[in-house]
Design a protein around this nucleic acid. Structure first.
Length: 493
RNA sequence: GGCGCAUUCGUCUAGGGGUUAGGACACCGCCCUCUCAAGGCGGAAACGGGGGUUCGAGUCCCCCAUGCGCUACCA
């Protein structure tokens, strides 16, 4: 039987990186075994469903390169893939359970349930549906039950959990897990609005969609016994289970927005590469080989093994993501990067530049930043003349004769051909030596004049990319507009 | 409270009876150097505690502690 797995988000918000990892592991498992990767939308809670959430989830997964084989947007033989479109199926199936006495009707109001829990809390016992004291088909006479049903009174259907039984199941990641039926609640299966709860819909769909492996978050471990009970009651073979460890904030709390960005969309917006984000998230809870950290999707697929996934939760470390993204920034082809940087340059209102030029700037600066968009800000001087100068830096290398040298150097550069790194290096070094100065006495002022900053790529490489005309222009502007006043300050200071 | 899951450097992890407990990020130092990076070299840094089992436990078992999850007509 071929492997079939599903990613089953509820459309209640944006895809966050925990969801991304769950989707990724499902995807890796499916691809590794040549199986199918299915999207199923679990929108059984009318109140919490957020319009547009499904589209966002699909778009984010597509952005990182995870494509589904079946789902609401691609169809498939086991649809519909949206639970709100399968209500009739759940209702039919749960009816079977009632007929087999594996489930029963209950008529309690929310207030009655609240009172029950209040009593239990005061008595110091675990809150759990009390089958024998509430209003349901156990406590009510049959004709009364019939009457309530006929009247259309608010009704739910609950799972009849066996009284004294150990429920056990095997988890691929964690091994045997056992829970006593005492500790399993008579879970609502069909809500009074006719919608199924997660538990019912999940089991029914996994069965009819022929899901072979359920790979989901650890928070589902406590309800898996209910699912096992349902499979038994239906007489179906349960799928295999694998519960993934949680992803945590740096303070070990459950991943949340309050601790920074968690939505995949946020990372995209900040200029992280999809490859880097996916690579990073893949290594939270699993690693293909301990000797390196950078893997292609194909490599991840080839080495993925569910039973090698860790059991302990993992903390999301932004620093490592930054490092990983930087690795990709250095190895991705510059023409792609240039293409992606153009919109950023545009949004910053920089003039238009040919991709050829943008590519050269990227090659020049990519080792100095973590994310592509930073090139536009860190290297702003490659696109517009410096507007601010780091005078502190300038002061450090100030020399009485600097104004004169700059005049002379400007003339020298005018005649330098070709205007390339090696020639610049050689000529400026010679220029400094002729004046009994170390190279840095010229390079630093030049850097300030050309870039406004104290940091950046190699000066000669930078000059070559900037081009002769622009270099000379910036020196001339500096000489006439900045130097007269600044020189005066330097002398008096 | 009950039930469940988990526990190796600060973080991600390798390890599955015999290891100087390895790698990566971050951190510190040195080298390189026109600055900043990158890179190279080096450093500091971990098996939560207690009992067992065994000739021998990070590795197996039990207890405790701690953390997290679940405990809805949410998923």
């Amino acid at each position: 039987m071929s492997v079939r797995v599903r990613f089953a988000p509820s459309p209640t918000g944006f895809l966050h990186i925990g969801g991304l990892r769950t989707a990724l592991y499902n995807f890796l498992f499916a691809r590794h075994h040549g199986g199918s990767f299915i999207l199923r939308v679990e929108d059984t809670d009318q109140e919490r469903t957020v319009p547009g959430a499904v589209e966002n989830i699909i778009e984010m997964l597509r952005w990182v390169g995870l494509e589904f084989d079946e789902g609401p947007h691609v169809a498939g033989p086991y649809g519909p893939y949206v639970q709100s479109q399968r209500l009739e199926l759940y209702q039919q199936q749960v009816q079977l359970l009632v007929e087999r006495s594996a489930a029963y009707y209950a008529f309690d109001t929310p207030e009655e349930l609240e009172h029950m829990r209040e009593r239990q809390r005061r008595a110091g016992i675990a809150p759990k549906y009390d089958r024998f004291s509430m209003r349901n088909s156990f406590t009510l006479p049959p004709d009364e039950v019939q009457r309530l049903l006929a009247e259309g009174a608010p009704t739910v259907i609950r799972l009849l959990v066996p009284l004294d039984q150990e429920i056990r199941f095997h988890d691929i990641i964690r091994g045997e897990i056992a829970v006593h039926s005492h500790d399993v609640d008579d879970q609502v299966l069909l809500k009074s609005d006719g919608f199924p709860t997660y538990h019912l819909a999940n089991v029914v769909d996994d069965h009819f969609m022929r899901i072979t492996h359920v790979i989901r978050g650890e928070e589902w471990i406590p309800s898996t016994p209910k699912h096992i009970l349902l499979y038994r009651a239906f007489g179906w073979e349960p799928p295999q289970f694998a519960h993934l460890p949680l992803l945590l904030n740096p303070d070990r709390s459950k991943l949340s927005k309050r601790h920074g960005d968690v939505a995949v969309e946020d990372f995209r917006q900040q200029g992280y590469f999809p490859e880097a984000l996916l690579n990073f998230v893949a290594l939270l809870g699993w690693n293909p080989t301990p000797d390196r950290d950078i893997f292609t999707l194909d490599e991840l697929i080839a080495s993925f093994e569910l039973n090698k996934v860790n059991r302990a939760p993992a903390i999301v470390d932004r620093k490592k993501l930054d490092w990983m993204n930087a690795q990709y920034l250095r190895m991705l082809p510059v023409d792609r990067l240039a293409h992606e940087l153009q919109p950023v340059l545009h949004s910053l209102n920089y003039p238009e530049f040919p991709s050829e030029y943008v590519a050269r700037v990227i090659a020049l600066l990519r080792e100095r930043v973590d994310r592509l968009p930073e090139i536009a800000t860190f290297g702003d001087y490659m696109f517009v003349p410096p507007r601010h100068y780091d005078w502190e830096y300038f002061r450090k290398y100030w020399h009485e004769e600097l104004p004169a040298w700059l005049e002379e150097l400007s003339a020298v550069l005018e005649h330098l051909e070709p205007f390339v790194t090696e020639r610049l290096q050689q000529r400026i070094r010679q220029f400094a030596e002729e004046r009994g100065q170390p190279l840095r006495a010229l390079v630093h002022p030049l850097r300030l004049i050309l870039t406004g900053k104290s940091v950046g790529a190699g000066m000669f490489e930078t000059m070559e990319v900037l081009g002769k005309a622009e270099c000379i222009r910036r020196i001339r502007i500096f000489l006439t507009e900045q130097l007269p006043t600044i020189a005066e300050q330097m002398r008096t200071a």
